[in-house]
Design a protein around this nucleic acid. Sequence first.
DNA 1: CCAATCTCAGTTAGACTGAGATCC
DNA 2: CGGATCTCAGTCGAACTGAGATTG
Lengths: 156, 156
Amino acid sequence: MTERHTDPADPAVVPERLRTLPSRLLGQAMIHGGRISRARLEEAGMDRWGYAVLVTLRDGGPASQARLSERTGIHRSDLVGVLNGLTDRAYVEREPDPADRRRNVVTLTPAGRRRLGELDRLVDRAQDELLDPLTQPERDELVRLLALIVEHHARG
Amino acid sequence: MTERHTDPADPAVVPERLRTLPSRLLGQAMIHGGRISRARLEEAGMDRWGYAVLVTLRDGGPASQARLSERTGIHRSDLVGVLNGLTDRAYVEREPDPADRRRNVVTLTPAGRRRLGELDRLVDRAQDELLDPLTQPERDELVRLLALIVEHHARG
DNA sequence: CCAATCTCAGTTAGACTGAGATCC
DNA sequence: CGGATCTCAGTCGAACTGAGATTG
């Protein structure tokens, strides 16, 4: 996970060399993406960590916290608090795994699944807002290129 | 400015919905870009803030700290320490502005300009490494799309 | 005994806030 | 006086570390 609450710079006054540096562009674009996604999810009283956990449970079924941590990128320590929030609102259940009682099995509840459907729409809206100046083919291409970069550096 | 020292997740185990989410891809790509750029600059005992200041001085000439803060995105408070480091190594000079003694005028020294030439090459290498899986046209397109996003959200 | 899991307390590094001192 | 500038001390939220308790 990552996130940072920073004011993005005004590109109009940033020197060309910095403004066109890919690593810096990624950072600036991420600031906007983070701000927009966070704002949309906050409308629903949710944060990006909670959303990531719900998505991961829907996609992969019930899982231990260690596996959820791997799949979401949320640190094992921070996951504890995220799950506390989700269990408080009955979006997930957390129970000891009968097969290995070191583990908890975290399960998506029907209420969590319904909630997730609404969150999906909010997140989609956030992406639309973020990518507003791009055409659909451009959006697809951006995702493709970013995925290439991320996947390339994940190995090694 | 932004930066975050996080371990990127392994995309192989991340659910499709998260893995292809533009806002998340930006974050993951930025983590790699930040890690690589930082590593390259550290070889030269520099950080990204110091580099941003030197570039901005070369591009726009001598400037006050307030203007440097605007152009680099470095917070006015943090700029103090960055300039202390750069003046210690005689890459910049910081003197009271005779025309308005509230201000400091920060100037790039010849030594700073020479140093910056070396740093440019290191930063270029970092970008190459980050964009390694992309062809040159793809790199250009990525920069173009990111710049569109950043510029769009900087207004308003 | 060693390794994995969950949890909690505490640390770290980065961005931000507020206020004081100085000057226009 | 209001407002800008530089500086410092302190705060805040996010990510991480380490260790204890439990179980395999």
